[in-house]
Design a binder for these strands. Structure first.
Lengths: 259, 259
DNA sequence: TAATCTAACAACGA
DNA sequence: CTCGTTGTTAGATT
């Protein structure tokens, strides 16, 4: 996306779902059009796009969405809630299947933006060290799963990936965070890196598309226990169970992941 | 208290428990000494004392405390955490049995003071009308007891008084707020006024002392159901039950206060 | 399948 | 008899 868009100037913005925005559509369009796209980067589940010289476009794709590139010759998707066209007539559309955010804010309000200001660090970032994870778990009175899913702690682990992360580390999702041994913290740290990197190597999840509409290759066959209720555990062949953990569902091997 | 203290100048302040304060003891003492006491009034469970010209002393007695007047000839209580002496050598001591707050703030920060800024109105205030109560209950997804105890809604109803308030209104503490009929809201409104006024007439609760160390006369014999587990309901003689409602205990007549 | 906010609620500590 | 903080949960959102 950065390769296609960076340095180009915004020519037109179409908003078909005002509820995605943080400001009225007219104001949004007026502010965005004419600006040049600067640096683009991701933090957790958010996309940050600088609009020169002093604004930011912040996008959260929510639960399933297509963010697709287009050129003058490509066919647009049938349905989309948002379209941004550049002066060379290329651009991108966003199709939300459920909810999502498209916020436009002045740069100086970036650190007050409620939904992104308190995001934790990315699990693939250099800053995410074993020591960081250790401190995160220490003295916390919460269970390990909600702690890892909380974007204020680590930004970028969702309910799809956490299933195998916990299985790889042989940890039950309801384990209290402060009770993990050093060895278990090490295993958890490695599992986070391993699972996320494997998905990236495979081009992302099979139900997601990249900027060019290509689906990823990281599919349920690559999962260890996630969404495999009743299937044998890849380690001990015990049937995998789907359990309720707090408000979310978890898939675990009851033998490998004891509480 | 207002009669004894208002208009006098602070000569000395003794702090024996810094955790009661919002600022370091030295700063507290330095700011308070030399100021003259202005208006004194209560709002909910808080005491507001103006220190001229531009400060406020805010006191919350928490769960049980003695706030006692003294003169040069009176005997001081054996133990106290706070002592304020005026230039005429009279003053007051505060003895906390559990926790409490003694905060000193500049007048211009009064509306930002976290613990008092969002206090609701007093149930004995003119503003507390039937319409106010009705609006408070409307569309709320909570039970009636926690709603009435929440000081942001109404400031001044505690767990002692609410027992008989709900009994007098024939309401179960777990009733959902939005389901009350107009008649029930009327009964509740009257019960709040009646129970609180009766306590005031009797000089307050029997386990509390006034400024001169005199105990109140509103005692358990005056209660309808509160703290009377097993005793007969004054209306129907059914034995009163102690039940858990959320995190607090409630005393109800199971026949008069059906859910 | 997937994400997040909010209100209400509970446990705990000072 | 109090209150704030932290974590949990159900419900809602387009």
């Amino acid at each position: 996306m950065a390769e296609e868009i960076t340095g180009k100037r915004i020519h037109k913005v179409e908003v078909h779902q005002p509820k995605n925005l943080n400001i009225p559509p007219e104001q949004f369009v007026e502010t965005a059009v004419g600006r040049t796209v600067g640096q683009i980067y991701g933090r957790g589940k958010w996309l940050f796009m600088k609009l020169k010289t002093d604004h930011y476009l912040l996008i959260n794709l929510g639960m399933g969405a297509d963010l697709l590139h287009f050129t003058p010759t490509s066919k647009l998707p049938e349905k989309y809630q948002f379209k941004l066209t550049l002066t060379d007539h290329s651009g991108f559309t966003i199709r939300f299947y459920w909810f999502g955010y498209i916020h436009l804010i002045p740069e100086k309000e970036l650190n007050q933006h409620k939904l992104t200001a308190k995001l934790g660090i990315s699990p693939l970032d250099k800053e995410f060290t074993r020591e960081y994870l250790q401190k995160l778990l220490a003295k916390k009175k919460t269970r390990i799963k909600p702690l890892l899913l909380n974007q204020k702690n680590i930004a970028g682990v969702g309910n799809v990936y956490i299933q195998d992360i916990l299985f790889n580390a042989r940890l039950h999702p309801d384990r209290m965070a402060s009770t993990l041994s050093d060895q278990e913290i090490n295993n958890l740290y490695d599992a986070i890196k391993t699972v996320l990197n494997r998905s990236i190597e495979k081009g992302g999840l099979a139900y997601e598309k990249n900027f060019y509409g290509e689906k990823g290759n990281f599919s349920i066959e690559d999962f260890g226990v996630g969404y495999k209720t009743g299937k044998p555990c890849p380690v001990c062949t015990t049937p995998i169970e789907k359990i309720r953990t707090g408000t979310t569902a978890s898939y675990i091997c009851p033998k490998c992941q004891k509480l």
